[in-house]
Amino acid sequence: MTLLIMAAALGAVAVVTGIAVFVVDSMARATFLLLASFVAVAVLLLAFGLAYLGIVVVLMMTIEMMIMVVFMVMLMMNPAGLEPMTMVHNRAGSRVIALAVFVVLAAGALLVPWPTRPAAPGDPTTALGADLMGPQMLTMTVLGLALLATIVGTVALSVSPGSRR
């Protein structure tokens, strides 16, 4: 029961901060609110005993928000200062898309016949790794390394040393 109340409260925080992302007129505040929304979801995962998953959400989302800031600097008209801006374009279309996606996801969550837990899962971190990777652990590891090497190589080759100003 406590867990249910907590889940409802954290869910409300996640939704409210998520909506606020599109209300505020500063990209820094929007970034912060989006992070707060994700952190609420992460705390929810922690409350369900999924420590690794919850903490990784905090870790990844913080880094992701900061990488989003890099993209802001690259792409926005005015990445400096506190010029008012809006996160919303094409209001009618985006509302329809957002509502449709929400309905589909909510319906999925409610209608899917969730399996009952067959037995105590043991260490949830190990179970998660085995479930995500399965027998492909080695393939995924090698693939991840190859991807990383490709990224570093591409950046190293594309940045000429003389481009520094």
Binding site: A51, I55, L59, T62, I63, M65, M66, T125
Partner: peptide, 19 residues
Amino acid sequence: EVGVVWFNAMEVLAWFAVW
């Protein structure tokens, strides 16, 4: 049990703080 990951997550919050 996943203290190392927790430590890492708390420490990247500093990026956000300084920014």
